[in-house]
């Protein structure tokens, strides 16, 4: 299967050490995995084990101390609009309206106002925020802010979108809603997505493929291909079986 698809991300023997006055800290060690075009990959692992660091490395906000990351044939050397990011905390520009936030990326690249407004509107509609275009983010709820974050990442039309525990701070109910929403969005606007989470249900519900990570230092522990029919049922026996298996495997990584 993998031979027929284009490889988007290649992580080759990636490692990352943080240096500080207190001492060095090996967070990622010998990490190897590939992500293919239009695939929804979930990086799944327990606690504080450097999952966010992997996304920062892929997005180019930080550079690896060993190995290299290649995205679409180019070695990552800095942040690029080709790689979008949705964050754990919303990280919206609080001083801009919803519309201004979503059209930020295209605006920075000099897309003419009319086109970028249209494009931004399309994604605002897609995440269901029609009518909130001129609100400032302070007035939106956490879930709505996170939707703006997703629309902002999509509106830049990147080849790859990284999501870093985007629903970590939401309440359980909103979380379920947002998971369905992401499922719907990624079906409508097909993109390569790398999604980080520590929630097994969320991982199985969304993923084409799950990569289970070791705890510190982080490396790949095991991979699962999830080919349950979508939209998935949280209570189906297959779902529960997979969940049990992953949870058991995860306990071994601790």
């Amino acid at each position: 299967m993998s031979e027929t698809r284009k490889t988007v991300i290649e992580c080759k023997h990636v490692s990352k050490t943080f240096y500080s006055m207190a001492g060095d800290n090996l967070v990622v060690s010998d990490l190897n995995f590939n992500v293919y075009e239009n695939e929804f990959v979930v990086l799944f692992g327990p606690g504080q084990c450097g999952k966010s660091t992997i996304l920062n490395l892929i997005s180019g906000l930080e550079s690896p101390t060993g190995g290299e990351i290649v995205v679409s044939g180019e070695k990552v050397s800095g942040p690029s609009p080709k790689r979008g990011m949705v964050y754990q905390t919303t990280n919206l520009f609080m001083w801009y309206t919803v519309m201004q936030n979503v059209e930020f990326g295209p605006k920075m690249q000099g897309v003419p106002k009319k086109i970028r407004r249209e494009r931004a509107q399309k994604y605002i509609d897609l995440v269901g925020l029609n009518g909130f275009e001129n609100q400032f983010p302070v007035k939106l709820s956490g879930g709505m802010q996170q939707r703006v974050g997703i629309a902002r990442a999509y509106a830049n039309e990147p080849e790859l979108i990284c999501m870093d525990e985007p629903f970590g701070h939401l309440d359980a109910q909103t979380r379920y809603l947002m998971e369905e929403e992401v499922e719907r969005i990624s079906n409508t606007a097909r993109r390569t997505v790398v999604f980080v989470t520590n929630n097994a249900e969320e991982a199985i519900y969304l993923a084409d493929r799950i990569i289970l990570l070791h705890n510190c230092p982080t490396s790949v522990h095991k991979e699962y291909t999830v080919d349950l029919p979508r939209p998935r049922d949280y209570t189906s026996p297959e779902f529960l079986a997979l969940r049990e298996q992953i949870t058991a495997d995860m306990d071994n990584t601790l």
């Binding site: 050490t17 240096y19 500080s20 006055m21 001492g23 060095d24």
Partner: peptide
């Protein structure tokens, strides 16, 4: 490598 980095921060 570690000490080198540390030194640059201090430097």
């Amino acid at each position: 490598m570690n000490t080198e980095k540390l030194n640059t921060a201090k430097k």
